[in-house]
């Protein structure tokens, strides 16, 4: 990885009010790289993503994107720089139609919306017959697909996805990971947060393991994912 990372999170600390979740956590994501952050629930993975996308401000530390500080910027500005965050729970707009949800994702590239939507729907054929139904009636898997499609409409340079496989049936989970592989193949850098390492082989280039708000293990994905006992030791502290 080059010295100038696409995303550079340096020694961030903070959380919710008095409750400190992150304790000097640092990670980097390079251009065209897929990085996974693994760790047990409640150890700061989601908090890290919320800080990167500006939904939460770090109490200390800094976050750089393309070498520019973003830790004090508003979430809409950060999205405008090219970071797309697919949060846990997907946060689709339930009363809006699926088509309108996807269009909302094109807010920053409105003039290209029709062409982008046509291209993105080629990768999301399950959504095509559902375009004119409200998002609230979608299944969990369809909602995840919609959140991904919407997140890609803005043409992100960095896609950050919180627990892409959470709560999905195995076949749907495979479809979601196939789409993430396609995104990686298209040159989109990614930061994925997962509790389990099962689906990351062949997708992630590097892995960080987080525990109690700190990185306790990092390295090439092929090495870390091969030695599950090392992972287990990191999980167990």
């Amino acid at each position: 990885m080059s010295d100038t990372a696409l995303l550079d999170v340096r020694e961030v600390e903070g959380g919710y009010g008095e409750y400190r979740v992150l304790d000097g956590l640092s990670i980097r994501v390079g251009e065209d790289e897929v990085v996974a952050v693994l760790g047990p629930n409640g150890h700061g993975k989601t908090t890290l993503l919320r800080m990167i996308s500006g939904l939460l401000r770090p109490a200390r530390g800094s976050i750089y994107f393309h070498g520019q500080p973003i830790h004090a910027r508003a979430p809409a500005e950060i999205a405008g720089l090219g970071i797309s965050h697919i949060p846990q729970g997907d946060l689709v707009f339930p009363q809006m139609l699926v088509r309108e949800n996807i269009l909302a994702g094109a807010y920053l590239r409105w003039s290209e919306r029709c062409e982008r939507m046509r291209r993105i729907l080629e990768d999301f054929p399950r959504l095509v017959p559902r375009l004119n139904v409200p998002a609230r009636v979608l299944s969990g898997g369809e909602r995840r697909m919609l959140a991904l499609a919407r997140g890609l409409m803005g043409g992100p340079q960095l896609l950050i996805v919180d627990e892409p496989s959470l709560g999905l049936a195995p076949s749907v989970r495979d479809s979601v990971y196939a789409l993430l592989r396609k995104c990686a193949g298209d040159g989109i850098s990614m930061l994925l947060v997962e509790e389990k390492a099962t689906h990351l082989e062949g997708l992630a280039d590097r892995v960080y393991v987080v525990e109690s708000g700190r990185v306790v293990l990092e390295g090439a994905a092929v090495e870390i994912l091969r030695d599950r006992s090392q992972l287990l030791r990191a999980y167990m502290g």
């Binding site: 500006g54 979430p75 946060l91 809006m96 920053l108």
Partner: peptide, 15 residues
């Protein structure tokens, strides 16, 4: 309408 439904999700779209 996106802001009306979920302001945090709207932020993430750059709205």
């Amino acid at each position: 309408r996106a802001v009306a439904e979920n302001v945090q999700a709207a932020y993430l779209m750059g709205i």
